[in-house]
């Protein structure tokens, strides 16, 4: 049986990807609130997803405050779909 993608098979990274798969884009504050994670941990996991090419992270300014926006890439979308398919095989669904 195919192995589950190690980048996605982690609680926080999978939570982030699940959220980003359902929306067009989300900012850091929204992701932190929905995943109930700490800013430091979320930041590390976003970097890992970004390094894998699964998401794009755009840092910008809104007035004087910074705003980090995340969006899933086509590669990330495919990886997520494959992950769900593999998961179904494991669970015999």
């Amino acid at each position: 049986m195919k192995e589950l993608d190690p980048i996605l098979h982690s609680q926080l990274r999978l939570a982030v990807m699940s959220i980003l798969m359902s929306v067009d884009e989300a900012d850091f504050v929204y992701l932190k609130e929905k995943t109930e994670s700490t800013a430091g941990n979320l930041s590390v996991q976003l970097d890992k997803l970004s390094a894998a090419g699964y998401i794009t992270v755009t840092k910008g300014f809104v007035g004087k405050k910074t705003r980090t926006t995340c969006k899933v890439t086509e590669e990330g979308r495919q990886a997520f779909e494959e992950y769900v398919e593999t998961l179904k095989d494991y669970l015999n669904l």
Partner: peptide, 15 residues
């Protein structure tokens, strides 16, 4: 939420 590994069932529930 932390960066921990999960079972397949937990993964599906999380999604």
């Amino acid at each position: 939420m932390e960066d921990k590994k999960m079972t397949e069932k937990e993964s599906l529930e999380l999604i």
